[in-house]
Write a protein that binds this DNA or RNA. Structure first.
Lengths: 234, 234
DNA sequence: AGCCATTATCGTCATGGCGACGACAAAGGG
DNA sequence: CCCTTTGTCGTCGCCATGACGATAATGGCT
């Protein structure tokens, strides 16, 4: 194999969460060159005997301090432009993680500091390497997957209300959804959510029923995103 | 960079086409170890200065003799189990290609012979490396994408009839679709297909209108797959 | 030529999901 | 005790869809 071009292989993570009605991404501030001082997606090199999902899970645990008990992790795509890293030929396998807002301490295991940044505060060209595009692809994937999978629940704690779930959709899609129709849709789609039997207490307004993720892997029919065709004036 | 584990990076192609009412995949017979004599997905090593999409396009051109004029090519996923290749640590970026049945000569640029094989004739464990799984993922992706994209047209020549398009769906999904409802759906979804203005001649039955691919990147609403819960007699 | 098989295309009708919205239930705060 | 807030259930009309029937336009056959 020595006759073939040697590559370095890394994993990078697009870790998304919803907190305070904002879609946020986990970013680290780079402590070394290149792009020293810039924000970047968390990630690292894959060990020579390490499987790719294992590397992604390991990095996620290192950066967030949790072993993905809840949430969701899937492969997003691979990016390998010859000059994406000035140090040499690095191919990175990007992963998308959706996590509930667990107020992670995000203790930087590495020297770099990490933090949740709202997507609305990020401007293009702000991230190191090609991470702007990776992040954009991840967000796009997340938005699309909310339509036809029950993955919105990955942003919620194990038990959640219909309103919390609706809040996830509204935040990720940037739209408003009718509470009554949303309630009908969620509770009416088989396998989307499963009732716990208990209700919230202590909040404002009428207590809400608690639910868990249902067993359905896909939403049939899908959750429809409202008409996004701008045109404010009807 | 020499301090980081060296990987070999390859691209592998899942090239699908529809011919004779069969979903077929382009496979090559391996001429060297490992897996000598076994069928495998076409692919090869990525050049040290070569971009990943460029490598995929190059391999596709080498194996099929065409520069992807029609059809569709997208990244499928990356597979990198530490022992997927006995020769060493090889990470492969798999790509999915959908092509019209152009009766490609499939002149083996490499010494290996290549051919179209119907999926129905393949049994699990028949392909080299982890290509069984890569192929399964590719087919699954293709089936899913027919639902919400106009990509079925990628299996057709530049100009095609509604019936040809329906045949693609029926073959890839393994179902039957009502010709009248399908016609209404296809011609009624904006941007799915664009009428050419001419019609076929010389075939059996009434001449059919010719269409081209429309500009829509997504199908709204999606093409629904018939209830697959049918317990067939088998 | 005439009939028929074949394929393409248009219509009709009932059903079901969804958007818009009204109504009621169940809590807390003044 | 009323009012506000939030959750849940119902109703109505529209539209896309599945299940057909009907008609149009060809080729093949006798």
């Amino acid at each position: 194999m020595a006759e073939y071009p040697p590559f370095a292989v890394t994993v990078d993570l697009v870790v998304l969460t919803v907190r305070a009605d904002q879609l946020c991404v986990l970013l680290v501030r780079r402590g070394i060159e290149p792009y020293r001082g810039a924000w970047a997606l968390p990630g690292g090199f894959v060990g020579i005997d390490e499987d790719l999902p294992a590397a992604a899970t390991r990095e996620l645990a290192e950066e967030t301090g949790l072993a993905e008990p809840a949430g969701h992790l899937e492969q997003l795509g691979t990016y390998g432009h010859p000059r994406r890293d000035p140090r040499g030929r690095v191919v990175t396998v990007a992963w998308l993680a959706l996590l509930p807002d667990q107020a992670n301490p995000v203790a930087g295991t590495d020297a770099a500091s990490a933090d949740w940044l709202p997507l609305s505060q990020l401007s293009p060209g702000q991230l190191a390497f090609d991470h702007d595009r990776v992040l954009a692809d991840g967000v796009e994937r997340a938005r699309a997957k909310l339509e036809y999978t029950p993955l919105a629940a990955a942003f919620c704690p194990p038990e959640f209300t219909v309103a919390q779930l609706r809040g996830v959709y509204e935040t990720v899609w940037g739209t408003r959804l009718d509470p009554r129709n949303f309630h009908r849709k969620v509770t009416g789609t088989p396998g989307f959510v499963a009732p716990v039997g208990r209700a919230t207490e202590g909040d404002r307004g009428r207590p809400a029923q608690l639910f868990r993720r249902g067993p359905a892997p896909l939403l049939h029919p899908p959750m429809l995103r409202p008409d996004q065709t701008g045109q404010t004036g009807s």
